[in-house]
Design a binder for these strands. Structure first.
Lengths: 114, 114
DNA sequence: ATAATATTTTCTATATATGGAAAATGACAA
DNA sequence: TTGTCATTTTCCATATATAGAAAATATTAT
């Protein structure tokens, strides 16, 4: 299963409260590494490293504006997580399948709209 | 956030492909530690340790039948994961909130029905 | 060119994760 | 009781994660 490593990286990235907080901030709005470092009690180096973990998991992506690096949430990656949940949970299966196809159409909209 | 450690444990438990495979097997049917050890190329000790990680995350629970320890999937724990996803993903928020209340009623049914 | 700013990388130390092998525990059977 | 089976625990070695501090890189400003 080639996709397994991707899930490994996603779930590992999510297994740390600091990284989840970073994601929560980024789900509000995109921020630079420095802005994120101010929000958390961490050096810039530490934040930078955590951001790389989130990036390798595909949960965020970066863009340069001047000397600042802005981090943006990748909303459509959550489709993979939802698919995994659907596989585990018999009860919700039908409901999550609906959700999944909804996400698929949203992901398309994302690619065209942003 | 007292709940953070719980999420840490859940996502960390899910960050390993072997443990996810164990969960997939258990979502089909409950199995003993030995049966699980046969399915994977691991010693019983190693499987036992991974099962403890899944247990501490609340993803499974155990029951003894004779000298065998049977592992059962905890379906309702996924509610917490779904809630986290909902917080991150603006687009699906409304859909996931529906899902969440569906899960809440299912979780109640679980407690009475099993 | 030089300085200042934002970020990444390197170095270092500490902590945690992992699994095998073997000892220990617990439960049943004769 | 003694032996056997299923599981857990301990011990050990190896690998990875983490963050701070300082050096390196890249970009803008003077």
């Amino acid at each position: 299963m080639e996709n397994d490593n991707q899930l490994d990286r996603i779930f590992f990235a999510l297994s740390d409260a600091k990284r989840r907080s970073i994601l929560t901030e980024l789900s509000e709005e995109s921020k630079s590494v420095g802005e994120l470092a101010n929000s958390f009690d961490l050096t810039m180096g530490a934040v930078s490293k955590n951001i790389i973990i989130l990036e390798k998991a595909g949960l965020i992506h970066k863009s340069k504006r001047g000397r600042q690096v802005y981090c943006h949430m990748n909303f459509d990656i959550w489709r993979i997580v939802a698919k995994f949940i659907a596989m585990q949970t018999k009860f919700w299966e039908r409901r999550l399948n609906e959700l999944e196809s909804y996400i698929d159409t949203q992901a398309l909209g994302e690619k065209n709209g942003r």
